[in-house]
């Protein structure tokens, strides 16, 4: 799959300290790509460089086939973190202005402004001025402007931060709807959200790349299962199965972590069925089965 973003040793230093340190990664076209990292990992700085807001101290990047010095702005959009809107202008005016800068005529810009305001459920607030917006409204407005037109690449820095569950879901639905049409980069502290939304993610820590992989690789969805038992059974029977490489049990024997032995591309469901049948045949009762580790567990392991 072609890469929409390719960075090569991208670096940003402030006062000699590297905030982003020789970052090299690629973002595949059409993916919903997660950007993970603890506070201060360099996520926002990397976004700012990819959007052309700040200049790299070293390295380079190619975005939609163009260098950072000549970004194809008409093909990309973003939700920058902490950027303020014009306090004296209405949401509708601001959106029409932004759409016109994207090359739309006034009529089309007005129609687009209405569409995106409706999508983030802010149509009733179209005549509110920027200075009167609550945090949640401002965030939704930020998301709305990022979805003006049909950008090929959308960069969203913490799109659901500070939103209530309903609005968060609205934004997630909007992002999911972009799948296949655009490439979306999402940075978030909400790991469950990244796990739910993204096909692939990278993890940053202290400005350095820790890992980049698909979500299923990161969580080990095809490599491990976690089984919670109601009644413990015999784990020795599992060790003899060809689809199992290792079994770890808790002290009471009711929590099992089973490592799978699958060929590349092989579906894990038959192996899981075999494991559960074997356990049940030894008298165990099954409570829950979770494939892989949660992204949160992996994130904490890696950072």
């Amino acid at each position: 799959m072609a890469a929409v973003i390719e960075t090569n040793k991208l670096t940003k230093k402030y006062d000699g300290r590297a905030v982003v340190d020789q970052l090299t990664f690629t973002v595949p076209q059409g993916s919903i790509f997660g950007f993970l990292g603890p506070n201060g990992a360099g996520k926002t700085t990397t976004f700012a460089m990819l959007c052309g807001f700040i200049r790299p101290s070293g390295g380079d990047a190619v975005v939609l086939g163009q260098p950072l010095s000549n970004l194809p702005r008409h093909l990309m959009s973003a939700l920058p973190q902490d950027a303020k809107f014009h306090p004296e202008r209405t949401l509708k005016d601001s959106l029409i202005f932004m759409a016109q800068l994207q090359g739309m005529d006034k009529q089309k810009a007005a129609a687009e402004a209405k569409r995106v305001l409706e999508a983030v459920e802010l149509l009733d607030a179209a005549k509110f001025r920027g200075k009167t917006l609550s945090h949640g409204m401002a965030k939704r407005f930020g998301v709305a402007q990022a979805f003006l037109g049909t950008p090929e690449l959308v960069l969203l820095d913490e799109p659901t931060e500070g939103l209530d569950p309903k609005n968060s879901q609205t934004v997630r639905d909007m992002i999911k709807a972009m799948a296949g049409k655009s490439t979306v980069l999402v940075s978030s502290h909400n790991l469950a959200e990244i796990e739910d939304l993204c096909d692939e993610a990278l993890i940053l820590d202290k400005g350095k790349l820790v890992t980049q992989a698909s979500i299923s690789e990161l969580t080990g969805r095809n490599q491990q299962i976690l089984i919670q038992l109601g009644t413990a059974g015999s784990i020795n029977a599992l060790k003899n199965l060809s689809s199992v490489t290792a079994v770890e049990a808790s002290d009471d024997g009711k929590s099992l972590r089973v490592s799978l032995n699958l060929a590349p591309g092989e579906r894990p469901e038959p192996a899981i069925t075999e494991i559960l049948s074997t356990l049940i045949s030894t008298g165990a009762t099954v409570g829950t089965v979770v494939r892989g580790k949660s992204l949160q567990e992996r994130f904490l392991e890696l950072t």
């Binding site: 807001f53 702005r73 920058p80 902490d82 950027a83 932004m98 800068l101 402007q145």
Partner: peptide
């Protein structure tokens, strides 16, 4: 200062 320029710079030079 208030980074409102970023909304413009996303779209133009």
């Amino acid at each position: 200062r208030n980074r409102s320029a970023r909304y413009v710079l996303l779209r133009t030079s």
